[in-house]
Simulated assay, not measured.
Amino acid sequence: MGRWEPNARDRLLRAALELFVDRGYENVTVAEIAARAGLTKRTFFRHVTDKREVLFGGQEDLLRTFTDAIAAAPDSATPIAAIAAGVEAAGAVFRLDRRELVLQRQAVIASNDDLRERETLKSATLTATIAGALRERGVTEPVAGLAAEFGNLAFRTTFARWVSPGNQREFTELARETVGELRAATAALG
């Protein structure tokens, strides 16, 4: 495959995952990932800052998907309804045809302390992004912060269900179900 071929980012992810699964995250270099993807090391660094970001670099798409959906929710939407729109919209990022890649990614992350720490940081970034999107809609504190935590929990729970063994359901369907369950749980809190 030539260096000029499109989808360099996806090629880097696939190449990295193949190598990480084969040899372990710590035993793979940037040069090896680039070579496996049919790219130069210089091209690698045009797309990501380091080999860790090969696994996490797509978060911008997820954050944008969330914020766009929250912003597009009707003015009458409650904070939870706006967040539900964001969690459901994440289905555009987590499609069934990419599930195997996501499962490989999760296995690599689970096997490395530094990557698990990075995943936690990315989760905190999602919460902050949701809170910011809600504040843009005029939601004040502490409601924006609490609702953002709800949104992150809804996303993480949906994601865990989506990657669970044997799942064949779409992310969006699971998101609707999860948000409904969490709404019921919050109502039970009194």
Rank of each mutant, 00 (worst) to 15 (best):
Asp50Leu: 06
Phe45Ala: 01
Glu119Thr: 03
Ala34Pro: 12
Phe94Lys: 01
Ala148Ser: 14
Arg135Gln: 14
Glu149Gln: 14
Ala124Arg: 15
Pro6Val: 07
Arg3Tyr: 01
Ala160Arg: 08
Trp4Lys: 07
Glu60Asp: 09
Glu60Leu: 09
Arg176Trp: 10
Ala185Arg: 10
Trp162Arg: 03
Ala90Arg: 06
Arg99Leu: 10
Arg3Ile: 15
Thr129Pro: 11
Arg156Val: 13
Asn7Gly: 13
Arg42Gln: 08
Ala77Ser: 11
Gln59Leu: 15
Ala128Val: 04
Leu126Lys: 15
Thr127Phe: 03
Thr157Ile: 05
Ala144Pro: 05
Ser76Asn: 07
Met1Ser: 09
Arg118Pro: 00
Arg23Asn: 07
Asp97Gly: 04
Arg135Met: 13
Glu119Leu: 10
Lys122His: 11
Arg3Asp: 13
Gln104Gly: 01
Ala89Met: 11
Phe66Glu: 04
Met1Ile: 03
Ala131Glu: 14
Arg98Asn: 11
Arg169Asp: 13
Ala110His: 12
Gln59Arg: 08
Gly145Cys: 07
Ala144Asn: 05
Val93Gln: 11
Val143Ile: 02
Ala77Trp: 07
Lys41Glu: 13
Arg137Gly: 03
Phe150Gly: 00
Arg137Cys: 02
Arg64Val: 09
Asn167Asp: 03
Gln59Ala: 15
Phe56Gly: 12
Ala81Met: 12
Ala128Arg: 08
Glu170Gln: 07
Thr120Lys: 08
Thr158Asn: 04
Phe155Asp: 01
Gly151Asp: 04
Ala92Lys: 09
Phe94Tyr: 15
Leu189Ser: 10
Asp10Ser: 12
Thr125Leu: 15
Trp162Gln: 05
Phe45Ile: 01
Leu96Val: 07
Arg14Lys: 11
Phe44Trp: 05
Ala84Gln: 13
Gly145Thr: 11
Leu121Val: 15
Ala90Ile: 07
Arg36His: 02
Asp113Pro: 14
Thr140Ser: 13
Gly190Met: 10
Lys51Leu: 00
Leu62Met: 13
Thr186Gln: 06
Ala154His: 09
Ala110Leu: 05
Leu134Glu: 04
Ala107Ser: 08
Leu115His: 00
Ala110Glu: 15
Arg169Ile: 03
Arg176Lys: 05
Gly151Trp: 09
Asp50Cys: 14
